[in-house]
Design a protein around this nucleic acid. Sequence first.
DNA 1: GATGAATGAGGGTTCATTCAT
DNA 2: TATGAATGAACCCTCATTCAT
Lengths: 199, 199, 199, 199
Amino acid sequence: MPKLGMEPIRRRQLIEATIAAIQEGGLAEATVSRIGHRAGLSPGIIHHYFEDKDALLEATMRALASDFRLGIVKRVARETAPLARLGAVIEGFLAPEQLTPQTVAAWLAFSALVRSKPRLARIQRVIVRRLHSNLKHELKRVVPAAEAEQIAEGLGTLLDGLWLRAATSPTGPDPASAHRLAFDYLELQLARSRTNRQV
Amino acid sequence: MPKLGMEPIRRRQLIEATIAAIQEGGLAEATVSRIGHRAGLSPGIIHHYFEDKDALLEATMRALASDFRLGIVKRVARETAPLARLGAVIEGFLAPEQLTPQTVAAWLAFSALVRSKPRLARIQRVIVRRLHSNLKHELKRVVPAAEAEQIAEGLGTLLDGLWLRAATSPTGPDPASAHRLAFDYLELQLARSRTNRQV
Amino acid sequence: MPKLGMEPIRRRQLIEATIAAIQEGGLAEATVSRIGHRAGLSPGIIHHYFEDKDALLEATMRALASDFRLGIVKRVARETAPLARLGAVIEGFLAPEQLTPQTVAAWLAFSALVRSKPRLARIQRVIVRRLHSNLKHELKRVVPAAEAEQIAEGLGTLLDGLWLRAATSPTGPDPASAHRLAFDYLELQLARSRTNRQV
Amino acid sequence: MPKLGMEPIRRRQLIEATIAAIQEGGLAEATVSRIGHRAGLSPGIIHHYFEDKDALLEATMRALASDFRLGIVKRVARETAPLARLGAVIEGFLAPEQLTPQTVAAWLAFSALVRSKPRLARIQRVIVRRLHSNLKHELKRVVPAAEAEQIAEGLGTLLDGLWLRAATSPTGPDPASAHRLAFDYLELQLARSRTNRQV
DNA sequence: GATGAATGAGGGTTCATTCAT
DNA sequence: TATGAATGAACCCTCATTCAT
């Protein structure tokens, strides 16, 4: 009998090699050959575990999305107070272990690819929507629904901007200042909301 | 008898064909051949006007950056009051003629490329820096320097987020709601600044 | 504890899977992997029972030739009269169970391969020669040797033509009309031979 | 301006290189690379003149069919008497310049391919049908229609058999004996037809 | 005996680039 | 100035074959 149970191991190896390869030279140089080499395997093996190169890219994007989501979910689960949970979403989004150069580079590359690959677009849409509904859900517990919707949109957009800057900054991500900016925005919005209601 | 003055015309044609090609199929399908065809020219022509494909891409990114900058500068020049000029920067950034699907797709593709092409990185860095200094310069005329710095960073980040969402949204850019979000942020920040100073 | 007596069973399984695979997609798509799958076995198994793919192909062609020959021999053995035995050769050659789409497709594929594979050429040569000597042997009992030689050649060629048409016809083999054509040829030749001798 | 009018020249070169490559090593070794090399060109050029390798193969089969047909048509055109024209068809079919080892090997390879490539099947069907209608047309001028149909079928089949033997014979085609066999068949059939009518 | 993981050569194809015209 | 023929490297992918289990 051959080595059994290699599939999940190899798939994960190849996905991680893909992310690393993208970070090193961009999507254009993340060739099947180089990904295989980086995983310590031969080029041909990729088609043993993935139907296509496209399938590998899709699995990679899905893994990125899933890891990212998990990082947030775990933090949120530790809190109970609405505001603390809201903060956990932001902190999870901007946590240094989420914004690694590799992750951020790969995700940016996929974002550009999304326009021409509908299957990737779906993955991206799902994750954006989930972030929005997370934010909105927690906000609704502290502000009226209409405002929650608006604040969630603004905050989500700001987080996207922070992420984009992390991705394209030559010095890499700066979690501390990102953190400050996001919380400042949240506080401003909440303060105004309170004022409105007091009047 | 060589036709005189063709160079700038051809260069512009090719740059525009490049942008269009990127929008249609992503950077991966923006081949020299397709770009030439789209410009109504032969594949070989590119190397008459550009040293190689990278040079064409660089020129394209530079053109995008320059057009973008011009769109803002023109609006700002029409205003004199600091707040109006600030608004003009935001409006220029988010103006529908700036956020065309073509422009936005091309710029996103270049953003992903930037990590592996230092020459493109420089172009991007310049434009980000200019936006920041524009915002800061106008803000300094209405709020103290320290606050101006922070507000400029926040506003710049939010604009980036709005742009990114425009670039990756399946329904395309939504200038109206982007506009509202940006101005709301600006007003909140300015209001707080005023409050601080009144105390 | 090795299973005993598996070898002939497995070899036959693989040979039949090869024939089926060739019929389905031509020789080009009859890969080791697909043949194994069709036999309900793994891709690697082929090299347990055959030295390499060429050996499997050779065994397959040999099996086809042998089955084909057996089909004729059995029919001939049932007859004693020279003419009846001659008819049995023809009938055996054109019998529906010989001209199955699978058989015919595989044999045609091998015929094309023969030019570049000397070992296959030998197998083919043997079977053609045997058919010829079968026909000639029976003919010699009813016509003079010189005529037997010529008629055997003509009849053999006609049978080849019938077989080729069966192999390449889009509607598949038509044994009935093939049968008629072959016997008509034989009768014409025998009639002339009789006439010659009467003079 | 580049070299003009190369297309028909190159296409013919590549088609002939394809035929030669098939003869040398069979279809399996007639790779794009080897075909290109044999034509004194680079591998990439094939896709300049043909969409696909399949398109090249199709063009090659079409060229073989067309050359073959032309060889017959020219001979027939020189004759006026029905029997002479009939003889010209046979002679054209079996002419040494038609039955070259290259031609015959390539056509056999295509015949095997036909089962899995519908587009090639069409080409083959057309040429078989044309031969049949040629034979029938001339025969109708010397024998009744019903007999013409049958004789044409028999003669066509015999010619196919002769061709197949030429293709698979280790010593190559033997036009002289092929010629004799075919004319003998024709004469036998015509003689019988005459006898029938005299009765 | 049998598996399927793994290899690496070679397949068809695409593409940036060069060059004669 | 502009063409498109031509190149050759590199891409993704398939495949016969090997091998640890």
